[in-house]
Amino acid sequence: MIYLNEDLCKGCYLCMEVCPRKVYTPSENLNHKGIRVPVFDLEKCVKCQLCTLMCPDQAILIEDDD
């Protein structure tokens, strides 16, 4: 599963930049902070954890489903 903490995300899109599988796209809606937080396509994720290493705001958790 992918969990994205909207209270921490600042909308820098570095997760989008580094994800090898193009899992993230900016949301169509602005949130309460005026940010289009990334939304994700879980199916495409290979759980490489790169986005969690590159997120400057510690906003992402990638969990193995088992």
Partner: peptide, 12 residues
């Protein structure tokens, strides 16, 4: 830190 600042990545 500003959005996308490299300092945040240092934590990780």
């Amino acid at each position: 830190f500003c959005p996308g600042c490299g300092n945040g990545i240092i934590f990780n």
